[in-house]
Nucleic acid binder design. Structure first.
Length: 204
DNA sequence: CACCAGGAATGTA
DNA sequence: TACATTCATGGT
């Protein structure tokens, strides 16, 4: 563990300690089932949207005790769309949430059962869902299911470019770069990715 | 008032 | 594979 990637983690860790704020829940260990479901919902709502707006939407859902996959599966679309409106793209996100909730809750029998599937299968099935691309699927796998997959997002990409970590900035290349230079630990991946985002947000 | 934020689907070439 | 367009709110 003596490469520039793990050195980067040590620096960030020394600088910020444990991830705070919005990341407190996502990096919490262990999480309750309810908390895991909130992570799934948040992962979808945060697509191309700042976290502040996601918080408004999550607050709306929680206020009505609807921040759960089974509730979202049952609720009517119009009502759901009104609640998630502050996060933007609310028609799309309503559709994505309902499809995802139905898949996990009905077809898989819940998050717990979903989590028992092997990693390759998880990636395949989640990205097959409408509205879940590589990043959102990996976020769910890492932060809701606690499985070691390094999430690549705009911040990770920006940092990699800034530090010239590699010349290939494609998703899979970056993911491989981080995963092959770190121990395969979901705890490490969670904290590291969170710290990258925190750091990139600060430095601007 | 203009621009953008932790994306993804769809269409085109 | 690569790029453009669409979806849409709230912050700065």
């Amino acid at each position: 563990m003596d490469n520039s990637i793990s050195a980067l983690y040590k620096d960030l860790r020394k600088k910020y300690g444990r991830p705070e704020g919005q990341w407190k829940l996502w990096c919490k260990r262990p999480k309750t089932l309810t908390e895991r479901e909130e992570v799934v919902v948040g992962a979808i709502l945060t697509q191309n949207t700042n976290w502040k707006n996601v918080e408004y939407a999550l607050a709306n859902l929680k206020k009505e005790k609807l921040c759960s996959l089974s509730k979202i599966n049952g609720i009517n679309k119009l009502r759901l769309s009104r609640l998630v409106k502050p996060s933007g793209f609310y028609n799309q996100k309503t559709d994505y949430l309902k499809r995802t909730a139905k898949f996990i809750d009905e077809e898989c029998g819940g998050l717990r059962k979903l989590g028992k599937k092997p990693l390759v299968e998880l990636k395949k099935e989640l990205t097959a869902l409408k509205g879940l691309g590589r990043e959102t699927a990996d976020s769910i796998i890492l932060y809701a299911l606690d499985k070691p997959v390094f999430v690549i997002d705009a911040y990770t990409r920006r940092l990699a470019k800034k530090l010239n970590l590699t010349d290939n900035l494609s998703y899979l290349s970056l993911q491989n770069l981080f995963e092959s230079n770190l121990p395969r630990s979901y705890k490490l991946y969670q904290d590291f990715h969170a710290l990258i985002v925190i750091n990139e947000k600060q430095g601007r």
